[in-house]
């Protein structure tokens, strides 16, 4: 590091911010590690780097997103998340006011979720070598006895559910970043889903798959699951919840909401006889009131995710190589 005292001063300030907001006892001890007793059971661990522009958006900011994203990745195994670790990479000259907002938001999100940040690290890079701030978070959690949730467990006949509307986060980010000025403000759905997951597991322990459809959206995530499980999926366009304002924005922008990122939604796959009970449990939770059954797992050597369209046809919802590039001649 060649930026001398500026960087050191900044790191010191950050240390103070963390002490102020993320005041968990393990963190405030000031050690370079957190020490705790592992609870009984199988542990899960997940890491996620958060790089987002803009840093602040309707419904959240990079701080809350960094907490939610990692909690959700841990929770999608069925685990109860226990602790988080956070690593910051800051660009020199990043406004301290913004940093304070981010750390405070992070603390609030962690407190609300009941999953504390227990260890952290900060590095400062030269101006021009970062993009404001990057946050990497790691989470650990413990999976309850008897729960086996994995992306390769979808079976033909299983039912596919989602916990709410698709595409809110991606459209919120895009419209804020590009200042698109839609009539209705679209808010990110960023939230921590572990309590919803706990309620779901309590109602139906035999959930086969859970996954949060983040980057690439519902379409990409279903393709991942179909591939992992070696099955096809049949979904219905009219069953997939999409907010009218998100649908309208997507139409105008020429985006397919099924490929747009979510940060507070999950996909669940469970045996058909348990789908209604699972749906009820999801709807009973505040983060799942708009849950819906969107289709079924089918046998298919091609592993197609196909969608019955509003029009009555059946379209392949493909894995895209890159951006949504027109194929029509």
């Amino acid at each position: 590091m060649s930026h001398g005292s500026g960087g050191r001063a900044m790191a010191q300030l950050i240390g103070e911010l963390f002490q102020r907001y993320l005041d968990h006892e393990l963190l405030t001890l000031g050690n370079d590690q957190a020490l705790f007793m592992p609870p009984p059971g199988r542990m899960v661990m997940s890491i996620d780097g958060h790089v987002i522009s803009p840093l602040f958006f309707p419904g959240g900011d990079i701080g809350s997103l960094a907490v939610h994203g990692t909690i959700n990745d841990v929770a999608m195994s069925g685990a109860r998340p226990l602790y988080l670790a956070a690593g910051f990479i800051l660009e020199e000259g990043f406004p301290l006011g913004d940093l304070a907002r981010i750390v405070e938001s992070m603390a609030q999100a962690a407190n609300a979720a009941g999953v504390p940040v227990v260890t952290g690290d900060t590095k400062v890079v030269e101006r021009g070598k970062g993009d404001g701030v990057f946050i990497t978070t790691t989470g650990i959690g413990v999976v309850p006895e008897g729960i086996l949730i994995s992306g390769d467990r979808a079976e033909p006949g299983d039912v596919i559910l989602v916990s709410g509307s698709m595409g809110d986060h991606g459209v919120a980010i895009l419209s804020k970043r590009e200042n698109l000025g839609f009539e209705t403000e679209i808010r990110s759905d960023s939230s921590a889903l572990h309590e919803l997951v706990a309620a779901m597991i309590a109602a139906v322990p035999d959930i086969h798959c859970l996954r949060d459809p983040t980057r690439g959206g519902l379409a990409t995530t279903l393709n991942e699951l179909a591939h992992q499980s070696g099955v096809g999926m049949q979904i219905r366009e009219d069953a997939i919840p999409v907010r009218p304002e998100v649908a309208a924005a997507c139409e105008l922008l020429g985006l397919d909401p099924l490929y747009v990122a979510n940060e507070g939604k999950l996909i669940a796959i469970c045996p058909p006889d348990k789908a209604e009970r699972l749906l009820d449990a999801m709807r009973a939770h505040p983060l799942g009131t708009e849950s819906a059954i969107i289709g079924e797992v089918v046998e298919d050597p091609h592993r197609f995710v196909q969608m019955e369209t509003d029009f009555g046809g059946s379209r392949i919802v493909d894995w895209l190589a890159g951006e949504q590039l027109p194929r029509i001649c």
Partner: peptide, 9 residues
Amino acid sequence: AMPGGIRAI
């Protein structure tokens, strides 16, 4: 440009 990609078609 094709503003909106596929929608422009």
